[in-house]
């Protein structure tokens, strides 16, 4: 099996896996980094969102062989002190219900704010439309993002 060297959260990891294995499963099963979640496997729910060179990507739909030396950031490495402004806002708004979608929501929102410091409501709706929350915490997710954006 081929060997891949991955840069995840500024650390190097070597993995021996199939070339078509999605990054999601490399993270979860090979490296036991389980913050990135499986929801659909077909880029429809956003639970598996990570950053590749700072942009939001659905890790379920990126094969490990396509990553090369791009920098991967997962929820575990979003902020070294776990105090990213969005994480602080998520605490303040007590956003989660079951919590399963929230890592993906935060990663997606963090990528949005990186490119757009002051997104409008419409910008937030557009950017977050790919992230499902089955529990329906959308109003709080939006409020939390807005509190950071202003």
């Amino acid at each position: 099996m081929p060997k891949y060297t991955l840069n995840i959260n500024n650390r190097t990891h070597e993995v021996n896996v199939d070339k078509d294995m999605p990054l999601l499963w490399v993270l979860r099963d090979t490296l036991s980094m389980v913050g990135t979640k499986y929801g659909c496997g077909i880029a429809q729910c956003g639970a598996c969102t990570v950053h590749l060179n700072g942009s939001a990507m659905r890790s379920c739909s990126v094969p490990v062989s396509a990553i090369g030396d791009k920098k991967i950031t997962t929820i575990e490495g979003l902020d070294k002190d776990n105090k990213h402004p969005l994480q602080e806002a998520w605490r303040e708004f007590d956003v989660p219900q079951c919590g399963y979608c929230q890592a993906g929501q935060i990663m997606n929102a963090a990528a949005l704010l990186k490119n757009n410091k002051a997104p409008s409501d419409q910008d937030i709706d557009n950017a977050m439309a790919g992230n499902l929350c089955r529990c329906g915490t959308y109003t709080r997710i939006k409020a939390a993002i807005k509190s950071v954006a202003k």
């Binding site: 389980v34 990135t36 979640k37 575990e76 776990n82 919590g99 929230q102």
Partner: peptide, 20 residues
Amino acid sequence: VNVDINNIITGKPLFGIDTK
């Protein structure tokens, strides 16, 4: 605030699917 909030927002293993 949710007692699991910090674990949820930092991606700690909490869910059944996270069992290793």
